[in-house]
Simulated scan of single mutants.
Amino acid sequence: MTNGEDALDKDHPLHGHIVINLFRCSNLLERIGRKLAAEAGLTSVHQWFILSALEAGDLSLKQLGQNTQVTKQNMTGMIERLKQGQFVATYEACGDKRMTLVRLTDKGREALARLERFEALSCATKVNRLCAEDLESFNRCLQQLVDNMNDG
């Protein structure tokens, strides 16, 4: 918080309304995301999350789990399914055979590029109705919320 900004009381009703609206958005985004993921050849929205996380470079299973909020046990199964679909490949880290790294394949990059090009995502979510400044502010708030929840 910056100077002059007061935190709302922990019992303020706005907190509950925000949580409910986040759940509503989550349900709607899940429905939209499942459809778009399927059109790109993926079996779940979580696979989309994983491909997006790998876009910046190769990651370990632990890093992927932290990035996507998925447990290591679930991550292992999801990576296996992505490998079977040839969207990702795995390899052992140099100098540490215990660490498995995951990288995007060309097929994974193509699927991700297709998902990012979908104008349907923008239209279906109606984010195109918000100005850039509002979207940037909203994104910062969501990131701070995620960071705060991870701290607890």
Rank of each mutant, 00 (worst) to 15 (best):
R34A: 13
R34I: 12
L36V: 09
A40E: 10
G41W: 06
G41S: 09
W48T: 05
F49T: 03
F49P: 00
I50P: 00
A56N: 00
D58K: 04
D58M: 02
L59Y: 03
S60Q: 05
S60P: 01
L61N: 03
K62Q: 11
Q63H: 02
Q63F: 00
Q63I: 02
Q66S: 08
Q66Y: 01
Q69R: 14
Q69W: 07
Q69N: 13
K72L: 11
K72Y: 07
K72N: 07
K72I: 14
N74D: 07
N74K: 06
M75R: 01
T76G: 00
I79R: 02
I79M: 03
E80P: 03
R81Q: 06
G85S: 08
T90V: 14
Y91N: 05
A93V: 11
A93T: 09
D96T: 08
D96W: 05
T100Q: 09
T100C: 06
L104S: 12
T105G: 04
T105D: 05
D106N: 13
R109N: 06
E110V: 14
L112A: 08
A113T: 15
A113F: 10
A113K: 14
R114K: 14
L115D: 05
R117A: 12
R117K: 11
F118H: 14
C123L: 15
C123V: 15
A124Y: 06
A124W: 05
R129L: 04
R129Y: 09
